[in-house]
Write a protein that binds this DNA or RNA. Structure first.
Lengths: 195, 195
DNA sequence: TAATATTTTGAATGATTGTTCAAGTTCTGG
DNA sequence: CCAGAACTTGAACAATCATTCAAAATATTA
């Protein structure tokens, strides 16, 4: 049984990059061929078809994102500060000139309707992220408050992912975050950053 | 000089529907032909090409949206209540089962990068909406506060447009709005709704 | 109504789409 | 070192893509 001659995860990472920036319809398989260096036959042999490859890309992207958030929250001195750090990362990323929003959000918006499976997958992953926040919040607040605050965080995260596309000064976004999430310990967070 | 035999705005409205739900890449010109009932030749004769038609659809959608917001804000007893009503409309729309998010937001996310003109157009229109909010807010707050609150409203609007795709109970969204925009007169708004 | 300007038609264009497959290559277990 | 399984190759497929255009139809002006 001969083994594949390429690194599967490396290929999927390249697919993530492509699908993330151009979307499902906007990224042709010929582009995938060009970007990965694999021939069409190998691609289909190893990954099935476009939809299956896209799904694997989504899956890996979501997994990376989830574990990154979990790490940020766990390594912070408090849940509140962890969330501050996480949102600050968003703002910073939005400042980069190759800002690509969020793969899950883009997929959700592009493929909604007609019972698309990829859309459902993206929605599921985003819901997982929300419940991750909720779980952490419940360490400090009751269930009800945790629920509405987790929802508020998601609202702001989505907003940032869209808002960031407008190349606004990061300061504007930071101000808006402090406006909308006044219960977070921004002062402690800002002080720690200066040190 | 013979006049066109169709209603231009009617055609553009149909194009808006199609492009809005399927995006630029996802909506083929053959679909536009099917939806509008015009033959390819007529379409190209009257509207130029796909990009030009899309742009006209964007333009009309944005114009309608802007004037709707302006009307909502002007007819309300106060700026704050006007904004409450506007956001409430968003939540309500998100509950509809043919929810399509926002055409401008979807376009921005789909076509970003490579200096796309349609992307730039969408961004411009969204910035117009933000400055409309800011103008109204300046009736009650100073320039700086109006700026950051307008930004916060946009953040929430974008968030709602994305969040709404998850078919969550509307109540969850309403709670999150009250969490994130506590300076708005929600109590007055909710009371008026019950009457 | 004749002459002219405008609009409609729809088959056809060449490019690009996602995908296939028979033939060839490479690897592995015995 | 050989047999057979696993993988690669890349030309080719039918379908669909955005767009064109000469000819026909229709409206307007004179």
């Amino acid at each position: 049984m001969a083994k594949a001659q390429f690194d599967r995860e490396e290929i999927i990472d390249k697919a993530i990059d492509l699908f993330w920036s151009r979307g499902f319809s906007g990224a042709s398989m010929q582009l995938v061929v060009a970007v990965t260096g694999l021939k069409p036959g190998s691609l289909y042999y190893s990954f099935g078809n476009k939809e299956a490859l896209f799904k694997q890309a989504l899956e890996r992207y979501a997994q990376k994102g989830l574990s990154r958030i979990r790490k940020t929250l766990e390594s912070a001195p408090s849940v509140g500060e962890g969330i501050c750090r996480h949102l600050d990362q968003f703002v910073e990323e939005a400042g980069h000139n190759d800002f690509k929003s969020c793969f899950l959000v883009k997929t959700q918006l592009e493929l909604a309707g007609e019972g698309n499976e990829l859309y459902a997958h993206a929605v599921r992953k985003l819901a997982e992220i929300e419940s991750l926040f909720q779980t952490f919040l419940e360490r400090e607040y009751d269930a009800e408050l945790s629920c509405s605050r987790a929802a508020s965080i998601m609202l702001h995260s989505f907003g940032l992912r869209v808002y960031g596309y407008q190349r606004l000064p990061e300061e504007r976004m930071r101000l808006a975050l402090r406006q909308g999430l006044p219960w977070l310990p921004w002062d402690q967070h800002d002080m720690q950053k200066k040190e």
